[in-house]
Amino acid sequence: STKSSGNNSSETCAEFRVKYVGAIEKLQFDMSKMLQEPLDLINFIDAAQQDGKLPFVPGDKEMILFVSKHGVKVASLDQCDVLHRHPLYLIVRMLCYDDGLGAGKNLLALKTTDPEQEGCTIWVYQCSSSEQAQSICKVLSASFDCALASDK
């Protein structure tokens, strides 16, 4: 088809195959204030893994993570069920870093809040490589810019 896709940034939408590590839900707001700096968030996830609240290695079930100006959606590989839905306006920040286990895998931490902004949840996914993690961050950043531009 002659429809050109991709260059029109407002239609930015991308799909990535990731694995789900886990989530730490319903953190109180004062706790979320402590999780602003990237290293604090990484240490928090590390501690959760050491305490067994989060596994070190995700299940081997792959999922598809969609990033667009609507936010982040995670669906099963056959896209029959939507597993997680993070609206863009509830996404506070996204962080990606090497999981340190030496296999070049990157962890993707998504900090979301609730509409009343009283608490926050940390969602952790595993990407297959840092390149994939970087592209996810790029698309999300473009989606924030696009949402900001349309707010004006």
Partner: peptide
């Protein structure tokens, strides 16, 4: 666990939160 490069994307709506 040593963490190398870290990339952060912040929603402008929550800058500083």
């Amino acid at each position: 666990i040593y963490k190398s490069a870290v990339t952060t994307v912040v929603n402008p709506k929550y800058e500083g939160k």
